[in-house]
Design a protein around this nucleic acid. Structure first.
Lengths: 345, 345
DNA sequence: CTGAAAGCGCTTACAG
DNA sequence: CTGAAAGCGCTTACAG
């Protein structure tokens, strides 16, 4: 009948003892199961309050029939980048409504870390997994999927495994951006893109090619710069482009950091008002720069919300064949993409 | 001797059966305990591989003497804002080295959510907690602290409970910013700040007062605007200031979103080059705006790294009296804060 | 309406 | 070096 010593965590058993009921009755009260008299509910509630009892979710999941921990794992490129952070936040908002907590981690384009994070999350018995993959093959996930743990891919498609994916159409978005530049009379449009090992970078390059082909413009290999994975690398690349004999009149920067780097370079060169630029992916304050930066905007909030919703629908027992869910992109004209060529190409 | 059916998760027991050893031996191998023959290690390893066995961290924590789950909980203002995201990322980098996963959640200045998140994380048996608090009193944490769960506060100090805190000196930082404006000959400097319910906002206002007092400038209540919690609210406030008979010649914007809103307003008014502005807290691309935005920069990476390190030192058994750890701020001059008054005050 | 027994997946504390 | 028994905090599956 004595309360648990203050230095130890109160257990369901302690509560039962103090309330003079069985552990099972405490469990019923905690889980709001019906069929407990008001008197016992009151006694248990008082005891819980008195002892500061907090149910151990992991222990309950261990015994529970469905094994649910009310926790999902989210594997992102980098929790600190605005795109990942917006995805994360949107998922949190969906999860919170259901009392579900979120484990997060950053992969930084490292396949090893992708696997390590998934292993860590699975080891912590997550109910579902949302993955922005870095590796080029996720066949290793087969084990998890067989167990019925829902897995949803975001941003990049799964390879070697069948699972839902929430993506944008990178090829269409890129094509749209480059078409916009063509419509502003550009014919010398450079592509500046991320690591060619990244599938979305490939798609964006393909969209660039499509748009040039649409316009009957020959692809110039000296205007295609790949494998830029930082703002600094992009900045240098732009300097090199404009040091060449045949500089472009417009830039299509196929990733966030590449866009920033390119803007810095144009500023240094004093060409931010004479060279057109469209970036893939929106970023904070793009509208406050001068000129405003025209972008192909993704909608990470919509992506995150959908990904989380799909996880929960699967957990609720809905079944459907794994599919690709495409979220539309949007061209946001702000000035930089509407600059016309200053010299005839 | 038959393998577990593929639709069920393999357990330590399944591995033991397949390897023809006892569960305890499998446990020894999984935990790299010494004293197992190479032959058994090999047999167990093969069985683990074959069954795709993944140890259940939560079950092991349940029985384990220290009860550690290798998971910490991080309560942030908003995982999507750059300051929180940078804190988060820095903690992840420290945690990753130790194989510790991170549960995260956003409070959005809502004390209810602060408590709900902490309850959720404690229920999931986190080993430690890092909290950027929203409530004005954390006495309710006493229960967790008594149990010995390390708790570290970041960004804002704990109230009603003794715990470590990793903070910046908001008052000193604000004073430094306003002194910088005074040194550029401003005497009509407006303060634009966040909700007065936020302790750091109070401190920043106090720093503003200090600097005015230092310079012998009388505080004008019409130049102090509080309770701005969004960019939109700040934008309107600036418009109001400049519609008044006695507009300021300089602005001290005491929070990120307030700074952004003020910049938008100055742009609209065409005064971004004639009115000085210093913001509290750095933000991405502040250097690419025109003029570049002078700020008092916090160092969220350093704060996150220190907070996580403190958690782990406590978990390692180090003991010290809870203390405030202050990370210095830095004035970053980029142009906007060096603008001189265009009209004599 | 209530509770005693067994067991979730693992480790502890022993014994051999 | 190895393993059988007990138990972490909880819920299941029964029985009354």
């Amino acid at each position: 009948m004595e309360p648990a010593p203050p230095h130890r965590k109160a257990t369901l058993r302690d509560v039962a003892r103090l309330a003079a009921v069985s552990p099972k009755t405490v469990s019923r009260v905690v889980n709001h199961e019906p069929g407990v008299t008001a008197a016992k509910i009151a006694a248990v509630t008082v005891a819980i309050e008195k002892l500061g009892y907090r149910p151990n979710v992991t222990a309950s999941a261990l015994r529970r029939a469905d094994g649910r921990t009310a926790t999902i794992g989210v594997v992102l490129e980098d929790v600190a980048n605005p795109f990942s952070a917006a995805l994360h936040r949107a998922m949190e908002d969906v999860a919170r409504i259901r009392g579900v907590s979120i484990l997060t981690g950053s992969v930084d384009e490292d396949p090893e870390r992708e696997r390590a994070l998934i292993r860590a999350f699975v080891g912590r018995q997550v109910d579902g997994l949302v993955i922005a993959p870095a590796s080029d093959n996720q066949a290793y996930l087969a084990t998890e999927l067989l167990r019925g743990t829902p897995v949803i891919f975001v941003d990049r498609p799964p390879v070697g495994v069948r699972a839902d994916a929430v993506l944008i159409d990178n090829r269409v978005g890129a094509r749209q951006a480059v078409r916009h530049l063509v419509e502003a009379d550009h014919r010398a449009i450079a592509y500046l893109g991320d690591l060619r090992s990244i599938a979305t970078a490939q798609d964006r390059l393909q969209g660039y090619r499509d748009a040039l082909a649409d316009a009957g413009i020959r692809l110039r290999s000296d205007h295609v710069v790949e494998d830029l994975h930082s703002a600094g690398a992009a900045e240098q690349a732009v300097h090199r482009l404009f040091a060449s004999a045949t500089p472009p009149t417009a830039l299509f920067t196929a990733q966030n950091l590449v866009t920033i780097g390119a803007i810095r370079a144009l500023r240094t060169l004093g060409r931010q008002r004479s060279v057109a630029l469209i970036g893939f992916d929106d970023f904070p304050l793009a509208d406050l720069l001068e000129p405003g930066v025209t972008v192909v905007a993704q909608d990470p909030s919509a992506m995150g919300e959908l990904a989380a919703s799909l996880i929960f629908r699967r957990l609720d027992g809905d079944f459907w064949e794994p599919a690709v869910h495409t979220i539309p992109t949007r061209l946001v004209a702000r000035g930089s993409g509407e600059i016309r060529p200053s010299v005839r190409p």
